[in-house]
């Protein structure tokens, strides 16, 4: 048996995901039953029982959402920890790219969190309305989410089962390191342009939120995903590491950097998720979702503040900005 599956942290992680899956399986069964029997206009006892069962699905989803919300950083942290015993890996970046499952797994986890958030939003408006108008929509969404979660569970297992601690890995510096003569930034931007864009899109998101222009907000969000990500990777991150050529999204999650990566990426993805959910609520459900939008603004503001802070802090300390040096990185 692969010894990594016996690693305490991984075992706890897999056990947690498995228990959640079992509970969600119950919810899934109930959900199918409800989809079949649901008839809001009926006066039967069955219908009243079914309406109560819908609350069971709700609590199970809230519970799973909260736990998965904790399990995602735990997952990253676990990878950080096993990078100690995997040769060549110095942070999660090496571990996650060990096999084909790592990145897929990470993305499916994000997608599930987003979809669960959307489900909770729909459910919120659904039970506040008088005739459960989105009952079927949310039930089918849950069917889809459950399928994703089942895939996720399998990948969880496959990912860790497949890691061979005797194989030497590449780590972040080789994965993300600047390739000679190749511009890694998207859309052929240079560093100054991407930073200007970063703040411009942030301003655009804020102003379209308060100006109630959802489509502009949506465009802002879609742009902010790559721009925000690459700005951190190639600019703000280097100030966190105080190393001009260290481009890694994962190392900042480590203790050496005071775990700053967790609030940083948390507020970034949190903002994106909240924004998408809020736009869906307003455009599809025609419901006012000020609260979600304010939370989004708060989230992005935290994100931008953290990013800016590290640059200013470095400048305050050293009186200069970081200049990337062209050196050949050995590792």
């Amino acid at each position: 048996m692969n010894s990594l599956l016996l690693n305490t942290d991984i075992a706890i992680f897999l056990l947690g995901e498995f228990i959640l899956w079992v509970v969600l399986l119950i919810a899934f069964g109930v959900n199918l039953y409800l989809l079949k029997k649901w008839d809001f206009h009926s006066y039967t006892n069955l219908q009243y029982r079914i309406e109560k069962l819908a609350y069971l699905i709700m609590v199970i989803i809230i519970f799973s959402f909260l736990m998965k919300f904790i399990l995602l950083p735990y997952f990253v942290f676990t990878m950080d920890k096993i990078s100690d015993i995997v040769p060549g890996a110095m942070c999660s970046a090496g571990v996650i790219s060990f096999n084909a499952y790592g990145m897929k797994l990470f993305f499916i986890k994000m997608a599930i969190l987003l979809l669960l958030m959307i489900w909770l939003m729909i459910n919120h408006y659904d039970i506040e309305a008088k005739v459960y108008p989105w009952f079927r929509a949310k039930s089918w969404l849950f069917v889809f989410i459950f399928i994703l979660i089942t895939i996720e569970l399998y990948w969880d297992y496959a990912f860790f089962a497949d890691i061979d601690i005797h194989k030497v890995l590449n780590c972040c510096s080789t994965l993300y390191g600047l390739l000679e003569g190749v511009n890694p930034l998207p859309f052929g931007l240079d560093k100054r342009e991407i930073i200007i864009l970063f703040y411009m899109i942030y301003a655009m998101i804020i102003s379209s939120t308060f100006g109630k222009q959802n489509y502009i907000l949506l465009i802002g969000l879609i742009l902010f995903i790559p721009i925000g990500y690459y700005s951190v990777l190639y600019f703000f991150g280097t100030y966190i590491y105080e190393m001009p050529n260290h481009n890694c999204p994962f190392c900042m999650l480590q203790k050496d950097y005071y775990y700053i990566g967790y609030p940083l990426w948390g507020s970034f993805f949190g903002g994106v998720f909240l924004g998408i959910t809020a736009i869906l609520a307003e455009e599809r459900l025609k419901k006012d979702s000020k609260r979600l939008k304010y939370l989004m603004v708060l989230s992005f503001t935290i994100f931008v503040t953290i990013c800016t802070f590290f640059v200013l802090h470095y400048y305050y300390k050293n009186g200069v900005f970081l200049e990337p040096v062209k050196v050949e990185m050995v590792m």
Partner: peptide, 8 residues
């Protein structure tokens, strides 16, 4: 009130 969801 003959047919209202629980919340209401």
């Amino acid at each position: 009130i003959s047919k209202l969801p629980d919340q209401h």
